[in-house]
Design a protein around this nucleic acid. Structure first.
Lengths: 152, 152
DNA sequence: TATTGTTATACTCTATAACTATA
DNA sequence: TATAGTTATAGAGTATAACAATA
């Protein structure tokens, strides 16, 4: 094993899509929450930040403004978040979770995580540590920001 | 660090979507290939297997038959693959790459991998080994099948 | 004039339900 | 009757281009 950057890229390119498909399928199967991955990520970001603007969310999640705007539309329509005009700068909007959104986010996080955790149960402690460390490493590259809290 | 299955799940749930977004964006930016992730995965599967049927591809990639059928439609229209009726069982189809598809797949693989590799260059050899090992571990869980070849 | 967001438009991805053709 | 695929339909995610409102 040379562990070249190329081999590393190859491994990621093969495994990441498979993981995502599992996550997506799992999220949709929980009819109670029924959130798509982008919706989930949007709610999670709003939960972790104080009244972010559309640009804040779009930038951090990595979507264009129109895409994000549409996702926000859906979440507002489902009464999971509120969208208000910022008083300081009326061009900006301020996003926040409703209590319903908060509840749903918590439920979705729990359900999906529980399912993933279930799939990971066959791993040894060593392997789990390995995966967590690798994710921490990749987070620095793909998310530009360190973990902000412990597992929620 | 407890390295519980729950923490492990949490880490994956946070990082995997970010990785995928990078991959998707990158794939779309290479106007020469211009493949979506599902299209890329479909081509790769056909490349790695001998004349698979629609069910083979759909099953392994984790899509329903209609979804897969539509993706195949697009690839056939772009002349990247061929779709022929199997002589043994006329209900089945046999998929194969055209030389154009083969070329495009190779190009897309190279371009995306190169971009990822570039992003991974800041990692130490130790970290790269860590990531590769973690991916190998996760592959067994999310892909049910071991790596079939070395990095291509 | 520059910034923030939304609307219009057009793809692709994805699923479920209903259908056709073959076995 | 069961299996392999396709078609019909619908909704979400995504982008680019054009627009409106505010600074």
């Amino acid at each position: 094993m040379k562990a070249s950057t190329d081999e590393c890229a190859h491994a990621i390119l093969e495994v990441a899509p498979a993981i995502m498909r599992t996550i997506r399928t799992e999220m949709r199967r929980h009819r109670t929450s029924d959130l798509s991955v982008p919706q989930f990520r949007t709610l999670a970001f709003i939960d972790n930040h104080e009244g972010p603007s559309l640009s804040d969310v779009a930038g951090h999640i990595g979507l264009t403004l129109p895409s994000m705007s549409k996702i926000v539309d859906g979440l507002v329509a489902r009464k999971l978040i509120t969208r208000e005009i910022a008083s300081a700068d009326r061009r900006r909007i301020t996003l926040a979770l409703t209590s319903r959104g908060q509840t749903l986010l918590t439920a979705a996080r729990g359900a999906t995580k529980a399912c993933l955790a279930e799939m990971l149960q066959s791993l040894s402690l060593t392997d789990r540590t390995l995966v967590i460390n690798a994710m921490e490493t990749l987070r620095l590259i793909f998310l530009q920001q360190p973990a902000n809290t412990a597992a929620r």
